[in-house]
């Protein structure tokens, strides 16, 4: 496998893992909660809320502005 293929495969594995976490959380399986519930819990605490907003802002700048 080429270096490019390996890099892309790594991102693909992470995307599949994210999809699995979302699916399991929404279905209440594996002892997980839905991503929205986690987000609500994070939003209840100011430092976590600020960190999430900063991460969101960076993602927008990274993917949409540059």
């Amino acid at each position: 496998m080429t270096a490019r293929g390996l890099t892309i495969a790594g991102f693909a594995v992470l995307a599949i893992a994210a999809a699995a976490l979302i699916t399991a959380g929404r279905a209440g399986r594996l002892g997980l909660v839905a991503p929205g519930d986690l987000l609500d819990a994070l939003r209840a605490r100011a430092p976590a809320r600020l960190a999430v907003v900063l991460a969101w802002a960076w993602l927008g700048w990274h993917l949409l502005a540059r």
Binding site: A44, A46, V52, V53, L54, W56, A57, G60, L64, A65
Partner: peptide
């Protein structure tokens, strides 16, 4: 992408979200 206009377009909602995130207060009764 890679223009000042795109940067401003990201900065406007990002700034608004940051202001809301820092000024938000718990809902009454929460």
């Amino acid at each position: 992408p890679l223009t000042g206009a795109a940067t401003v377009a990201v900065a406007l909602p990002a700034t608004a979200a940051l202001v809301l995130a820092t000024r938000r207060r718990p809902r009454p009764g929460a």
